[in-house]
């Protein structure tokens, strides 16, 4: 009797195990959190050095169109205008999303509304395969198929925003598709039955009921796709041409933030202005990634409020 009393009032092996387990998992998640904080901290401090140490004006950095960090212009200021890369990055991102969205929605609707069973069986692996293909392989195919194709059809070098868009469109397609599928699937079945019972055709039901209620989810899907396109480095770098020039159309070689980073970091010395300027580009990438995150959250909240 007293033994049981003692057992009940004192810690046992189980208590210690639990403390041990808690400790380990807290440590792991702590590590992950610390990692995120240090990434944000290091990239931010490095990225700000251009403005704090080298005293480049932020406005000039964002609006200047000449990128040649190693050289001074005629007023003796370093030429670090990041606008061409910012414009190119946004162009390929938006264009890729614009091209990909109809395809993604078509596939998503096919998988959910038109032929749910067969469609999923065939298209789910298709999406997974598209996700699985590494970005360098996309870049290689872009380089050996798309760039020559553009060169022959439109002239010029073939490198440029159009080539970048075509490569990125395929890369973001699976992201937008699978998230759209999720949001369309989340539309309650009775919405559809109600609409069909009122005599609406399948397309009217899809267009007026299903897509309407899935809109926040589809927007989220598109933003995730854009986020992937904006941050993609090597595939774009291989087909964009890598000339830091203000793009004058879809066919002239230009450079995105990521492509400039991958080409440049190895050729500059740590701590110098040309190097700092590159870290500032990385900071823009980081900030944009956070912006996309925030956008997704805002849309998620709006969508939740509407329901």
């Amino acid at each position: 009797m007293d033994e049981i009393k003692h057992d009940l009032q004192n810690p046992s092996k189980a208590t210690h195990q639990d403390l041990f387990g808690k400790g380990i998992t807290y440590l792991c998640i702590g590590f992950v959190s610390l990692l995120v904080i240090s990434i944000l901290y290091f990239i931010t401090t490095r990225g700000l050095a251009t403005f704090t140490t080298n005293h480049v004006s932020l406005w000039k950095f964002l609006s200047g169109t000449n990128w040649n960090p190693a050289l001074l212009d005629k007023h003796g200021n370093p030429q670090i205008g990041a606008l061409p890369m910012i414009v190119t990055s946004f162009s390929v991102t938006v264009l890729a999303a614009v091209v990909a969205t109809p395809f993604a929605l078509g596939v998503a609707l096919f998988m959910t509304e038109i032929a749910p069973e067969k469609g999923t069986k065939i298209l789910q692996p298709v999406i997974e395969l598209l996700v699985g293909i590494p970005s360098v392989v996309y870049g290689f195919i872009g380089l050996s198929v798309i760039v020559p194709l553009i060169r022959h059809s439109f002239g010029g070098t073939g490198f440029g925003i159009l080539a970048g868009t075509l490569v990125l469109f395929v890369m973001v397609l699976p992201t937008i598709t699978s998230l759209s599928v999720d949001s369309i699937k989340a539309v309650p079945m009775f919405y559809r039955s109600a609409s069909l019972a009122l005599g609406a055709t399948r397309w009217q039901t899809i267009y007026k009921v299903v897509l309407r209620s899935a809109t926040p989810g589809i927007l989220t899907a598109i933003i995730f796709g854009m986020s992937r396109a904006f941050g993609e480095a090597l595939a774009v770098q291989m087909v964009i041409g890598n000339a830091v020039l203000m793009p004058h159309g879809l066919l002239t070689p230009s450079s995105t933030l990521t492509s400039q980073l991958t080409t440049g970091i190895g050729n500059t010395t740590m701590g110098t202005l040309p190097n700092n300027a590159l870290w500032s580009l990385a900071l823009i990438l980081l900030l944009m990634s956070l912006v996309f995150n925030v956008l997704v959250r805002i849309i998620g909240k709006r969508g939740a409020l509407k329901k």
């Binding site: 049981i4 057992d7 009940l8 009032q9 208590t15």
Partner: peptide
């Protein structure tokens, strides 16, 4: 068993064995 087992210092894992 004469104890209040709804207190903080009771070992719940032992409680559940009984």
């Amino acid at each position: 068993r004469g104890m209040d087992i709804n207190t903080k210092n009771i070992n719940v894992y032992e409680v559940r064995k009984h």
